[in-house]
Design a protein around this nucleic acid. Sequence first.
DNA 1: GTAGGGTTAG
Length: 510
Amino acid sequence: MKFSRSIFSHWRFIRPSGRNIFTHHSFGQTPQKDFSSYLNADNPISALLLTLRGGIPLRAHDFPSVLAACSSFPNLGRQVHTLMLKAAIHSQPVPATALLDMYSKCGHVEDALLIFDEMPVRDAVAWNALISCLVRHGLTSDAIAAFHSMVDDGIVFTGHTLCAVLKACASMRALRQGKQIHSWVVGNGYSSVVMGTALIDFYSSFGMIQDAMEVFTRLNCPKDVVVYNALVGGCIQNRQYKEAFTMLRNMRPNGITLTSALSACSELLNLSYGKQIHCVMIRRGFGSDVILCNALMDLYAKCGEITAAHLVFKLITEKNVVSWTCIIDAYGSHGHGTEALKLFRMMEERKCRDVTPNAVTFLAVLTACAHSGLVDEGRLCFFSMRDKYDIDPGPEHYACFIDLLGRAGRIEEAWDLYCGLSESANKLTPAVCVAMLNACRISMDLVKGEHVAKHLLYLDSDNPGSYVLVSNFYAAVGRWEGAEDLRKQMRGKGLKKEVGSSQIAVKGCS
DNA sequence: GTAGGGTTAG
């Protein structure tokens, strides 16, 4: 790919650090040496595994780092808890706080709270860990209550406390209280880059991007990539794309920055910036990153660059269900149904864990069949959802399949499906009715069509689009008086069909 | 031992 001028050309090549905690995982002949080297090399999981296999016991001060490494492995974490009980150090503030945090990060809130309850002495860090745990799990009012209890207990709160409370304020939509924290932070010299990030995130969540920018500008300490990302993300969430791209030009991005940048490109359908971000991804060693590649692939496909989308797909080393769904949808929505089906079969053949097709994948496959008129393939796929994958087809799958049958003139088969749905009211959605009505229009079936039309107008009586569709149906089958009557009903209700619109970036970013 | 950034497919 050639780019005349890159907006991101000065971004330097830096490989992301991706140290794997299992990298040094091999049990040598000298466990004692391995044990301490694992701990020294910050590879606590391997040290823990040696301990659990009857090796050297962990020392009291080893527990916090081992627990921190267990935050994605709850079963290991529980085993560490048992070791702590045996060593009678489970109630000491430092290891107990680490234990609380481990349970919190593993999603075991009840266990985390139990640890806190059983702590005989609770210092500020223990309280902070508790408040963070409550905020993390959406228990915001409990978090605020805990903050008050902490103060009541005479514990002096810290910057950590205020960051967690600020997050709670954002999710409770407590703007005034959050602003109070801001004033307090400024007045008492609690500013830091972390606090600044929390404040930027807080103001962004209220759409107050100017205030977020002011926090950033006034930040009187070295700015790191996280605080930049918070502001870039805030700008994008608040649709301030120009500001976001200006910031992007003046920073050194990491994977998270690029994720935000790609989401902005997708929102704007801006392929030019997308291609430049693609170059940066390659230069910075993110060329195979599954999340970034999926987003990029989708952008290429949305912009009609199907070959580029496929190239990106091929480069993903660990393709997930989203990657496969994306590429199937890319081909399918551009009328390449056979290619989409070929990819779907390749996906099925993989039979790997995590790459099993899901409901979204099936929708992509059905859409692909519908766009290319592949009736038999579509039918096979529709029925394999339940038979082979135990996925209950949703109304969107029915709508798509009925549409496919309707276009092929298979009105009776479509009707049978439609009638079968009448028993489950939640599946007979306006979209299903629209698909069935179209099928009736194509087959000029007045009786069935009138039945469907009636139901559509019952379900979607305030949607002008439904009246237009029904009116078009009557016109198509030659019932002009019916068509005119519908238009009159629509006018009588004061409904007006909105004019369709679409947009694509031609120059610049907005 | 506790705090800050994003999450991709319809």
